[in-house]
């Protein structure tokens, strides 16, 4: 059996190895990000499904830490952009600069040329700047001065937004939201986890609990091999059919003004594959679809005005749909 946890191994891992590795990754990140097991799992699912994540939570819950530890686990690069109202698109993608010595234009690459990009408080920048991420999120390429350049793979955007502050923010447009594979909600840890976190942090004077924990478990090449293994997970037609029926149900429900698009069906199946491996299976079950459905679809649906007035949330609506839509059988 290949030891995938040793960086340098280049053969494609078996399902058991892939599952074991994902488990190790979850545990390692969980050591730094205490009390956020579900968040860690969802972010890992998105990462191995090749998607981007929109993290929503109040400040101080370790969003930056999560991204940094995630980058450390596979030896990737990590950059952070603090979105502000005066941020320009070229501040993200890069720009051409005239070199006086050589007498020609040179391209200066922006922070987007990295493996993991943390777009902190993405809704603080206007739509023009937010749109600079559209191309790179979809194509994994950036166009600077008419020339298209690829960003290093794996590439993942983790954008954060604060659910409480609404003043001076620019809500993300639907097109941008649809490009995020998952919207992950980070909530406060429970009491025992918070005690453990406080005890751990106060052992040093640094606020970063990840010092020493960030051991590299795989390299970028192994990362892609792991993705290949995940893509070979057995997927029955009924499961695909179930995912599509779920997504289509969001378009037929009168309490939902705008349902999820086809990207949601694709995202559901991709995430379900990773979830199956994470659960130690080499085949996808309808349960995997259910497990990721809310995170995948909560930002892709817009509730009707009367449902909002009734205080129904997108999560409640999706749980309701999951209860009503027939699961595959026989």
């Amino acid at each position: 059996m290949n030891d995938m946890s040793t960086p340098g191994s280049v053969t494609e891992p078996s399902f058991a190895e892939a599952s074991e590795l994902l488990e190790k990754l979850t545990q390692q990140i969980g050591k730094s990000l205490i009390g956020q097991q579900a968040v860690v799992e969802q972010v890992l699912i998105a990462m191995f499904a090749g998607g981007h994540v929109l993290l929503e939570g109040v400040p101080g819950l370790g969003k930056t830490l999560l991204v940094r530890v995630l980058a450390q686990t596979f030896g990737g690069t990590f950059k952070r952009i603090q979105f502000t109202p005066d941020l320009m698109p070229s501040d993200i993608t890069g720009h051409a600069l005239f070199d006086m010595k050589e007498g020609k234009f040179r391209v200066r690459q922006g922070p987007v040329f990295t493996n993991l990009l943390l777009a902190d408080e993405i809704n603080r920048a206007p739509a023009k700047t937010q749109a600079a991420l559209l191309e790179v999120m979809q194509e994994r390429r950036v166009t600077i001065e008419g020339k298209s350049q690829a960003v290093p793979l794996p590439f993942m955007v983790l954008a954060t937004q604060n659910p409480l502050e609404q003043e001076g923010t620019y809500p993300l447009p639907e097109a941008e939201l649809d490009r995020f594979l998952m919207k992950v909600l980070i909530d406060y840890p429970n009491e025992s986890d918070e005690v453990q976190l406080t005890r751990m942090i106060t052992q040093t004077t640094s606020d970063d609990p990840d010092s020493g924990n960030g051991a590299q478990l795989l390299n970028t090449e192994q990362f892609q091999l792991l993705q290949n293994t995940i893509n070979q997970v057995t997927l029955d037609e009924q499961v695909v059919d179930y995912a599509v029926r779920l997504v289509r149900a969001t378009r037929e429900n009168t309490a939902i003004r705008q349902g999820a698009g086809p990207r949601a069906s694709i995202a559901l199946v991709r995430c379900a594959r990773v979830n199956a491996v994470l659960q130690g299976r080499e085949f996808v079950l309808p349960d995997d679809i259910k497990a990721v459905a809310v995170a995948v679809m909560r930002h892709r649906i817009t509730l009707a005005a009367d449902a909002e007035i009734d205080g129904v949330t997108a999560d409640e609506m999706l749980h309701n749909l999951l209860d009503k839509i027939e699961a595959p059988r026989l």
């Binding site: 349960d287 999951l322 699961a327």
Partner: peptide, 28 residues
């Protein structure tokens, strides 16, 4: 196997009053 599963589900619904719902998967 499907016949056995379906028969079991019907028995469980009628004889043992199991509250299965539309959205329940096999594992649930």
């Amino acid at each position: 196997i499907g016949i056995l599963l379906r028969s079991s589900i019907i028995k469980l619904i009628h004889d043992h009053r199991c509250p299965f719902q539309e959205g329940h998967t096999e594992l649930e």
